[in-house]
Each structure stands twice: as C-alpha cells, then as structure tokens.
Amino acid sequence: MSSSVPSYLEQLVRHPETDKRLWLDPDQRVVGKFLRCQLASVFQPVIDLNEQTSIAREAFVRSWHQTESRLSPWSLFASAAHDEDVVELDRLCRTVHLLNHFSGLHANEPLIVNVHDRLLAAVAGDHGRSFRRVLDALAISPSRVIIETPESVCLDRSLLAFVVANYRLNGFRISVSVGRASDVQKVLGIVRPDYLKVDGRRIPSTAEAAHVLALAEANGVRTIIQRVETHDQLNTLREAGITLVQGFALAAPSAVPAQQTPLATTAA
C-alpha cells in the first residue's frame, strides 16, 4: 500500500468536512459524491491463463441516486450536461478507484482505469497531468496505473495518437480498447500501447484470435481479450494461444475488501 493512502483515509475520518466529495463507508471503502449521486468501485481481474493469477485489475464505477436504488454509470455520465462536468466526474471516479484499489488486498497489482471519450475530447491540453498530480500526492508511481482508452477513440487517428503520447509522457502505461478484431492492424499502425484489449464476443474463431495475437506480438504489444462470458469462448482463446483474459467466465467485478485495519470513527 502507498504510505500516503492510509494517511489520506484517516484524514477523511478525522476531518470529514475536508472533502465533502469523498468519505468512507462502514466497510472502509471510499465513496464519492457527484451532484445527488454516490459512486463506489468494483474491480475485475485480468487473468493469466498459464499462471492462473491476476496480472492487473480493472476498475468500474457503481452508482446510485439518493432517490433511486440504482443508477447505471451510463445514466450518470449522461446526466453531466457540460464538458466540464464530465471532466470533473471522470476524475472523481478515477480518484475513488485509486483510493479503493491501493488500500485494498490487491494493492500490489497494477490498476486499470478507463477514461471517458467526452473527457478526451474536452481536454485540449496535457492528458494525464491532473491525474498524475493526484498520484504524486498519494505517493503512487504512475507506472502502477494503466490508462485504458475507449473504443470510440480508435475512430480518430490524431486524437488516439495525441492521447497515448500524453499519458505516456506522464508516466502511465496504456491499454487501447478495440471494438473489432478487424481494427487491430489499423490501431497498431498509429500507436504501440502496452496492452491491446479486444472484445471477445467479436472474435468468432480460433484463427481470428490467433491472427490478433500474432499482429500484437509482432509489434511488441500484449493482447487482452475482454468480455469473455462463456467457457466456449475461453476454449477458443486457449486454442489460439491467448493467455490474458478478462470476463465473467473467470470472475465478475466485485468490491475488494480493505486491507487496512478499521479506522477510528472519531478523533482521539
């Protein structure tokens, strides 16, 4: 665990008015507030099939409205009418994920965080600079964080290249999410991310999976097949030589138990 994360969490308990957007729930997990909504984190592992271990965990937001039992993340982002609201919401989600992951039982693993496509379009300057400042304040190396770009960014060659270069400049590792296997060669002609993530539901055959893997390996990029939901999909990927897999066939997203001892609820 980063030495600064426990101190920050302790500050939330002892001085709850310091940042009204963040607090700890009874299970010692960080919860965020945006407008009248609350945000929490769940994490899904990326599994190495050869080693049967997790190599990283991807964070997803779970949200609910104070008048509703559940609010989908898509509805939450849609409620942010202005670009500046999207920027604030996206950064808040990533901060909640950071604090939950790096205070949890799997803090030794890299964290994968997504960025919303509207944020990438709205921020004209240095992508990753603000997030890097959060990491620096928490004494977390940016190399322990993998920024994942959305599928839609692959449609804009110049934006994809610009965004990847900016995040790299700020020390982050990069994962590019590709919607279709047919887009892999085009993406690799623009950037060389650390990871290439392809939707497993759109890879119908062993031959196509093997082709994706060969293209990525030829460019020094590791392949992760995501949204693997059935054992038939899993068998197809194994036959193709795919080793890094993510999806419900292996593990559902879940909250990670905090590893710190329970923090006092009142100041000593």
Rank of each mutant, 00 (worst) to 15 (best):
E208L: 13
R36Y: 14
A121M: 15
L244R: 03
T266K: 08
Y167S: 13
A252H: 15
E109S: 01
G247T: 11
D48I: 04
E51H: 08
Y195R: 00
P26E: 14
A258Q: 04
P253G: 13
P253K: 11
H127D: 02
D199S: 12
D19K: 05
V191Y: 01
E17M: 02
I146Y: 03
D156V: 08
G125T: 07
A81H: 10
I112R: 01
N170G: 13
K197L: 15
S41F: 02
A59V: 05
D126A: 07
V123R: 04
A81W: 11
D117W: 06
P253W: 08
E148H: 05
F131P: 08
N166F: 05
S175K: 06
L98H: 02
H101Y: 03
S69D: 15
I242W: 02
A56K: 04
L263G: 05
L49G: 06
A78R: 06
Y167K: 14
R168L: 12
A137W: 10
F43E: 07
L22Q: 10
L111D: 02
L159I: 07
V87H: 08
L120V: 13
I55G: 02
E17Y: 02
D83S: 14
A249S: 03
S177T: 10
R144F: 01
L35P: 00
T243H: 07
S141L: 02
E109V: 00
Y167G: 12
V163C: 14
A124E: 05
R157C: 05
R91E: 15
H116I: 00
A59L: 00
A81S: 13
V113F: 01
N50F: 01
L89N: 06
T53W: 00
G179C: 02
E68T: 03
E68M: 07
V221N: 02
E51D: 13
G171D: 01
V163S: 15
T53Q: 01
R36C: 12
A252K: 15
L188K: 06
A218Y: 00
G247I: 07
C154I: 11
Y8A: 08
H211F: 09
P45W: 08
T266E: 14
H106G: 03
G241K: 08
D27E: 15
D85T: 10
R133P: 10
R132E: 06
